[in-house]
């Protein structure tokens, strides 16, 4: 056996291994909690809101239309059909997932969903769900999407996205962050109306019981509020659980193969159309 052969074979194997390693840096995962991701898959909220601001509603158009969906949570088989259907809807400005993007709180799951949702013609925004809060999920969510509480204004409407996953904080009385929410609710920032979106609805057992009443009260006292929107229950409904004039809109999960096309106009007029896919 020649010396050349002896060394060439292992060297080529080493090169192969090195190529495999370099080509699969993303696969070299330190832990399922490892949230490293390429720049284009990080800070997605900021990126999507940036895109949204690039496409303002035509001047004079009062009606804002967006798609509202619930939990994507390990329902990957359904996403392609959902995206195809959503892309057929006319006049849509953006797309909302009301939390539980992931099932286990892993960045990888959030990236799997993003890989599909980025095929939407419109930008999408999310709010954190309880499953996104498991283990190191909150940190993964912050890395992949962004802040847990944030707001934006589009089409004369202020959208307030708030973490209401109280059980994930062992009901520490801090979530939802009422001082932050009250500040946001009291400042329309030039918008005409506002919408609050969170994952766990206030009448749910996973909402901090000590904050249910203050939360409902804050919404009741916000005259410009169109409605409050949630996911979590995997079942759609439009109700007034507190019989106080405040509408609560709950979305289906992706698994129910149904989403909502929501139109808002005027001071606080709205219409919801259920679309099956």
């Amino acid at each position: 056996m020649s010396r050349g052969f002896r060394f060439r074979t292992p060297s080529s194997l080493l090169l192969l291994t090195a190529a495999l390693a370099l080509g699969s840096c993303d696969k070299l995962e330190f832990s399922p909690n490892d949230y490293r991701a390429p720049a284009e898959e990080r800070a997605l909220t900021e990126k999507n809101l940036g895109r949204l601001q690039q496409m303002p509603l035509p001047v004079g158009q009062d009606t804002l239309r967006f798609i509202f969906t619930g939990d994507s949570q390990r329902f990957y088989d359904e996403v392609d059909d959902l995206v195809a259907s959503a892309n057929q809807q006319p006049g849509i400005s953006f797309f909302v997932v009301a939390g539980d993007i992931s099932d286990f709180g892993f960045a990888k799951e959030m990236r799997w969903i993003n890989e599909k949702l980025r095929q939407l013609k419109v930008p999408y925004v999310t709010v954190i769900g309880n499953h996104d809060s498991v283990g190191n999920g909150r940190e993964a969510y912050k890395e992949i999407f962004g802040p847990l509480n944030y707001s934006f204004i589009y089409g004369d409407t202020k959208f307030i996205m708030v973490d209401t996953n109280g059980r994930e904080y062992n009901f520490d009385g801090q979530v939802p962050n009422m001082p932050w929410l009250n500040r946001e609710l009291s400042n329309l920032g030039g918008a005409r109306r506002q919408v609050v979106i969170s994952h766990v609805p206030p009448q749910d057992a996973d909402f901090d019981p000590a904050l249910q009443a203050p939360y409902a009260q804050a919404l009741r006292e916000t005259k410009s509020l169109v409605f409050q929107m949630n996911g979590h229950r995997h079942s759609s409904s439009i109700t007034q659980p507190y019989k106080d004039g405040v509408w609560y809109v709950n979305a289906d999960a992706f698994s129910e193969r149904q989403y909502m096309v929501v139109s808002v106009w005027g001071d606080k007029q709205f219409r919801v159309k259920q679309i099956k896919f």
Partner: peptide, 28 residues
């Protein structure tokens, strides 16, 4: 190349929506 119980569970319940390569993890 490995995968963990939860990635596998994700794949096995979504063989259309996910690919094997997405759930593989490399160790060196």
């Amino acid at each position: 190349l490995s995968s963990n119980d939860l990635y596998l569970h994700s794949y096995l319940t979504n063989t259309k929506g996910l690919s094997i390569s997405q759930i593989l993890v490399l160790g060196l």
